[in-house]
Simulated assay, not measured.
Amino acid sequence: MKALALHIAVIAGLWLLHGLLPAYHHGNMARIMVLAVFAMGYNIAFGYTGLLSLGHALFLAAGMYAMGLGAQHFGTGALPGLILGTLAGGGIAGLVGLLALRTAGVSFMIVTLMFAQAGYLTLLYFGAVTGGDEGFPLPAAARILAGLDLTQDGPRYLVALALFSVGLMAQLALVQSRFGRVMVAMRENEDRSRMLGYNPFRVKLTALILSGLYAGAAGAAYGLLFGYVGASFATIQFSILPMLYVLLGGAGTTLGPLLGAVLMFYLIDTASTHSSAHLLVIGVALLVLVLFAPKGLLGTLRDRGIRWLP
C-alpha cells in the first residue's frame, strides 16, 4: 500500500505542477515525462532483468517513425499513430531479441549496439522517405488527440502526464507480479532460475519486448508532442541516455527512471548554460555517483532503510 500511495502522490504532484511551472520548465517537464517512459522501458530490461543493452534508440526510433510515416503518408491520426508506434517498438525489440539473446553480457550489449547502428544507417540511406538527419515536421492535423491540440503547451503536458501515469502504474503492477519476481530472479541467478523450471530465453525475450513497447510508445509520443521526426533519435546518444537516467535514479526501482531523467536533464541544461565543458561536469557527477551511490539514488535509499520501495 505504501508503494501504491507513493506512486499516486508522484502523479498528483506532477498534475499540480501543470498549473505552477513557468513556461520554460512546463515544456521541459513534458519532455522529461516522455523520456522517463523511455527510461522505464530500459529499466525493465536492465534494472529488473539484467539485460545491458545499447540498442534502445532503435526501439525509440521505430515507434517515432511508425507514427510519423503513417501520419505523413497515410494520414493516420494521433491515437492510431501512438498505438502503431508502441507496437512497432515492441515488434522490433522482439526481432532483435530473437537473435541478440543468443548472446549474453558484453556480447549482448555489442550486438544490440550493432542493430541500433544498422537501423540508424538504414534511416539515413532511405533519407528521401525518412528525412534522414534533417527529419520532417508532423502536419498539425496529425497532432490532435481526443480533441486536444498537441501544438499547445497545456494539452501537450496533460498528454505527457497521461502517458507517464499509465506507464508508471503498469510498471508497478509488472514488478509486483509473479513475472516481475521471475525477472529479478533471472537477473540475480540465471542458473538457479533455470533449475526451478523457468526458461531464461523466454523470460528475457518477454522482458525485452515489454521494454520495446515502452520505448516505442515514448518515441511515438515524442514525435506527436513536439511535432518532429528525425534519424538523430536513432543515434547511440539515445541508447546511452536511458541507461544514465536509470543508473542515476536507481536501477531496479520504479521511480528511478523519473528521478534520473529529471536530474540528468537539468544537469545537462544547467552545465551547458554555464560552461562549454558540460560533458566534463556530467562525467564528474557520474563518477561521484558510482563511488558513493553505485545503486543509484533510490537504490541506495532502499538499501539504507526504505525497504518497501519497489
Rank of each mutant, 00 (worst) to 15 (best):
G81E: 00
A207L: 04
M169T: 08
Q176G: 03
L148C: 13
I306S: 00
G55V: 05
P294E: 05
A217E: 00
Y42W: 15
T112G: 05
G197W: 14
V288G: 04
F226W: 09
G85T: 03
L174V: 06
G250R: 00
I8F: 12
F233R: 06
F226D: 07
G119K: 02
F126H: 12
R304D: 12
G75H: 07
G147Y: 05
M40V: 02
D191K: 14
F226E: 03
S239C: 11
V34W: 01
S211P: 06
S275W: 00
L54H: 06
F226S: 06
I236R: 07
T253H: 01
A234W: 05
G77T: 10
I110P: 02
I236K: 07
E190F: 09
V96F: 03
A36H: 00
G97Y: 01
A116E: 14
A162F: 01
A185I: 10
V129T: 14
S193M: 15
V166F: 04
L263I: 15
G252D: 02
G296T: 12
T86E: 05
G13A: 10
V182G: 06
G283D: 12
R307M: 10
L95D: 10
T86V: 06
A185S: 15
R102L: 11
T49R: 00
G167F: 01
G256N: 03
M109A: 15
G135F: 06
S232V: 15
T122Q: 04
D191C: 05
T130C: 03
Y125K: 15
A221M: 07
S165R: 06
M29L: 15
L163I: 13
L145P: 04
G227K: 09
T206G: 11
L16E: 10
G167R: 00
A66P: 00
Q117F: 11
T254K: 02
G283H: 12
G305L: 03
S107Q: 12
A118I: 13
A277E: 06
R302Y: 06
M114W: 03
G132A: 14
A231R: 09
L280Y: 05
G249D: 14
H278P: 07
L210A: 07
T130P: 08
M169P: 02
